[in-house]
Design a binder for these strands. Sequence first.
DNA 1: AAATATCAGTTGCATAATAGAACTAATTAT
DNA 2: ATAATTAGTTCTATTATGCAACTGATATTT
Lengths: 157, 157
Amino acid sequence: MKAKSFSEMQCSIARTLEHVGSWWSLLIIRDAMMGARRFKHFEESLGIAKNTLTSRLAQLVEGGILEKMVPPDGSKHEEYGLTEKGRELAPVMIALAQWGDKWVAHEKGPSTEIIVADTGMKLPRIWPRKENGEIMELSEIGMKRSNGASEKNWFTN
Amino acid sequence: MKAKSFSEMQCSIARTLEHVGSWWSLLIIRDAMMGARRFKHFEESLGIAKNTLTSRLAQLVEGGILEKMVPPDGSKHEEYGLTEKGRELAPVMIALAQWGDKWVAHEKGPSTEIIVADTGMKLPRIWPRKENGEIMELSEIGMKRSNGASEKNWFTN
DNA sequence: AAATATCAGTTGCATAATAGAACTAATTAT
DNA sequence: ATAATTAGTTCTATTATGCAACTGATATTT
């Protein structure tokens, strides 16, 4: 693949994708959020090849998204836990999950529902909002380019 | 790579990733949101190989995220525009961009800032909220598994 | 109108990421 | 003590992507 690197790109989206690493990385992070901590958890849950998992985990640790931790239960097997940096990918995950539920739903429905813990209700849709907390239309989103001060809209369709 | 398919997975995140296609696809969608409409726009903006761009575009069209459109300016060159399905990936993009700005910022700052069009102010952080619109702590997010009715927390670290 | 340049690809070859299987040392269970 | 599990490593095969050259259609210039 000749791994074209996105990381020099000034765009934050590209830099994030580069930093995260790959599809697998996102699914590893998802599993970590749902409680996976050990090599075998990720392996069994994902059906990923061992060598691939090894390098994805190493990359995520190097990127500061996961960290190796001493197992609380006293086991000598290494465990992987999310850092703050990794945990803050939650909005990305939630947005991906909600989009999938809406647009490419599985016939059996979602295997897991994200909820508000204390009420047990489905988590409201994650969506851009104004300063006052009001939900926005996508057409209300704009963008400011830092180089030329030109201002423009998103979704110029 | 033997393209292991995520699409049978019941997980909405995996299904979304599979449906979207690849890193490139996300950047193509980003460019489309910022106004790119023609082959050369994407090509120049991304520095992607032509054959790769061809197949990514085809995949996005097939997936219903982009659609081929008759150019409004009367040109005979095909154009690509976001569908509603594609436009609704905005929260994913915004979440990726905001995470990147916070955690892997470019020294020169972001090339583009996402703003609230009418106020010109930076778009507030996209983040999970309760039914009443209140921002949530990540620890307040839970999950309900549809198979076993077992209930559990996200971020079990 | 003819010539030139641009656009949107296609084709063929090289390379990197991943899959898959077999192997291994350390840890855990029996 | 023995067996099984865990967390990898190493090897080869396959696929996605990169890169360069080519092509027919459209758009621009002379």
